[in-house]
Design a protein around this nucleic acid. Structure first.
Lengths: 222, 222
DNA sequence: TTTATTTTTTAGTCTAATCTAAAAATATTT
DNA sequence: AAATATTTTTAGATTAGACTAAAAAATAAA
């Protein structure tokens, strides 16, 4: 394997990460506009950046056809995700942050460039497999352990589940969950599902709670 | 106290830090050239940046007269130093880095912008008063505990001392100290001082060692 | 106190990353 | 298939931070 080291800027890393996240939904090429929306920037800026990333062989790009990550780009993206999630674990487990406070800080920490740092941090945290939102943490080779989980919105009425993750990890949503006393590991039983709007009646910690379809389709259970 | 929040860029922070470090040596105004040398950049770039920092009221600047930090600038600089040194403690104490490996990573970590993060980190590390090189860590108000220490080059022959810090914390120097088995806390007795070149003969951990004047003038003792 | 030297500043250029507005390509309707 | 709408790209401008080369100010030497 010829491993020439390619410097990737802070901004380029952010693009790689976004392309990575969007890739699962559209594996044959991510749209310029989708990237622009995620990055809160303009499509023209995205086009410019994609060209740079293509130069560096981090993405495959054909005009008007969208982008996809090269093997190299994929690994780079996974390493950013790895760093982001490991820092989140650190913030929650060691510094006592709550799960709705970690995102922005991790967003900065993920760009610190030191393999040694991140691998030592990984060991210090005891090689966690998931971040505080239930998302898997890639190992140092970019391997990701698949865990099976489903959305609460797809749950079967009458069955018992455990909350294992969130799809939306915005602080607004996480604070809502805090208020409802829903956390990772929280057991719940699906009591009823309203056919009209798919609202759920769920028993959580002895209390009956109404959860909207929007909520249910952002909570992972098992 | 009117505290308008002023955004300071990564690069501006580096300038503030350098001006802060140079200020102790020349309290009435730091030279453009001195800053340029420290930052490994050109004097013209320094002039440009100083103007920006003056706009933001972080420094006092008069053409051709050098710069000094305002109260605001001083606090900002101290906060960067605080972050740098706390992260160094973290790297050494928690992640098992050695004192000659921490500088570059801390140089990146010091720019992470989160007061909460740094104060939580401080608590997690048990409010250390010094970094791994014996330099004092400013508290969250910018207060610095003065410790008295002197350079080994000024030590008295015949007396016993303890190594309490390094003036130069380059990895080259620190690795030399590792090789000589000199660390913070290492006791030493000054046996002789050569009048011609000020070389010292020092007893360290039962062994007699010859230390050049250059070495001696970069080691703090007490 | 002139002259020479050094330091500092200005003027103009460059690159990365962004933007707006317009043009080109693709996709969708009719 | 032609017309319309949407998406994407190009062209040209802007800003931060840096650079080179030349001018201006301050300092040192004669």
């Amino acid at each position: 394997m010829t491993e020439k080291y390619i410097f990737v800027t802070h901004s380029e890393e952010n693009y790689l990460k976004v392309i990575y996240h969007l890739s699962s939904a559209s594996p044959k090429g991510v749209n310029t506009n989708a990237i622009a929306a995620m990055m809160d920037t303009k499509a023209s800026s995205v086009t410019d950046m994609i060209k740079k990333l293509a130069e560096k062989e981090m993405v495959l790009y054909q005009k008007y056809q969208g982008v996809s990550l090269t093997e190299q780009g994929l690994l780079a993206a996974k390493m950013i995700v790895r760093k982001h999630r490991l820092w989140e674990v650190f913030l929650v487990e060691k510094l006592d942050f709550s799960w709705d406070e970690v995102h922005d800080v991790a967003e900065e920490l993920e760009h610190i460039k030191s393999e040694k740092l991140i691998n030592k941090l990984d060991a210090f945290l005891n090689f966690p497999s998931e971040d505080p939102h239930g998302d898997p943490i890639p190992n140092q080779y970019g391997e990701i352990q698949k865990t099976d989980k489903q959305l609460l919105s797809e749950a079967t009425v009458g069955k018992n589940y455990i909350c294992v993750g969130v799809k939306d990890s915005s602080s607004a949503f996480l604070q809502y969950l805090n208020k409802q006393k829903i956390a990772l590991g929280t057991p719940m039983k699906i009591l009823e599902k309203e056919t009209f709007d798919q609202t759920l009646l769920v028993e959580i910690e002895g209390e009956d709670k109404v959860l909207s379809h929007k909520i249910a389709s952002n909570l992972y259970i098992n």
